[in-house]
Design a protein around this nucleic acid. Sequence first.
DNA 1: CTCTCAAAACTAACAGCATTAGTTATTATG
DNA 2: CATAATAACTAATGCTGTTAGTTTTGAGAG
Lengths: 194, 194
Amino acid sequence: MGAKGLTKEIIVAEAVAYIESTGQPVVSLHELARRLGIKPPSLYNHIQNTKELQYEIFQYAMDTFVANQKAATENKRKDEAVKAFAEAYHSFATEHKGLYRLIMSIPSEEDDRAKELAIPLLDTVVEILSDYGLTEETIAHWQRVFRAILHGFISEEDLGYFYYYKSIDLKKSRDIAVQCFLDGLHAEIGAAVR
Amino acid sequence: MGAKGLTKEIIVAEAVAYIESTGQPVVSLHELARRLGIKPPSLYNHIQNTKELQYEIFQYAMDTFVANQKAATENKRKDEAVKAFAEAYHSFATEHKGLYRLIMSIPSEEDDRAKELAIPLLDTVVEILSDYGLTEETIAHWQRVFRAILHGFISEEDLGYFYYYKSIDLKKSRDIAVQCFLDGLHAEIGAAVR
DNA sequence: CTCTCAAAACTAACAGCATTAGTTATTATG
DNA sequence: CATAATAACTAATGCTGTTAGTTTTGAGAG
């Protein structure tokens, strides 16, 4: 065969390592090749193009993200699970900034492949909300609300748009948001009973 | 002076027009020069670099965004103002996708200039929440919650992460989110009274 | 142990990007 | 009308991704 024992897996691992270290969701093929000790065109023996590499990294990021959430909510139900999920979500996003940004930068409109890869992320949330005994439609709505809050918070924080009133505790704001969601959910359950 | 009547304002206007038409938050100087009928380096007679141009467009986008919100909430108070704001926010983000993406893609961490430009955006929200008679700290928290919900919703929608349960009305989900926020806010007011 | 052949590296090249240096053309003003 | 400043230009550099064509390498067959 060829020269070194280079595989797609090694390339993806190196790309992930780079992304983790920079916090940016992108790697140039030149930078990647440099780190692997080869010339940029040689990468094309293992990958098709940048897009495919992105998908591979995206998949890795999504898998890690979901596994992290499942672990955090494993033996928990209802409010406890919701809170643990929110905490795990935020931790992952801040500790793996590059990976989270990647997950949230692939425009999956008109991109069915990325959409499929994102399904497990939704499933985890839906699973938690299923314990509340709501209709499927209600779950669909509140799952959206929950994820909007979680991502919105990370995103604004990341952009620096929560910079103002800097002295005011961010964690408390986040707890208020999650509690606000839970209260709304509880009210929904109450309404459904009647 | 030089040759044509080209100014920074014209360049920015052309860049904005391009961004509005593509929905992407970026323009290459080559594309911009092509549209203006000049060669790329000539742009440097009017702007310093890509970054400065980005700031100019950012400022325009922010001004338009804020003006739009002020107009939408002008004669409204409390819940009515909150709802109108949410609606205006969403409309702007979907109708001016490129501008909104730009606003939400400039990393203003360690970027004081962009931070300053974003202040009016926060002020509008704070102003609305001020009518509820809450403490400054409470307003700071709930203003974060509100903006997180608004941006989170747009962002997830834009990314296609609300694609699933496609048949289930997005607008209704959004209304639920806003109402959830309002209920939480009302509860906070009730708690403050005691 | 050598020959072969395919896999995987390489070099050379192109196109598109931002940007700089140095040059020419234009135009308002003295 | 001449001058000086302004703003266009060309040429070039160094990034980026990518393709074509060539050489190297190493595993298996004879």
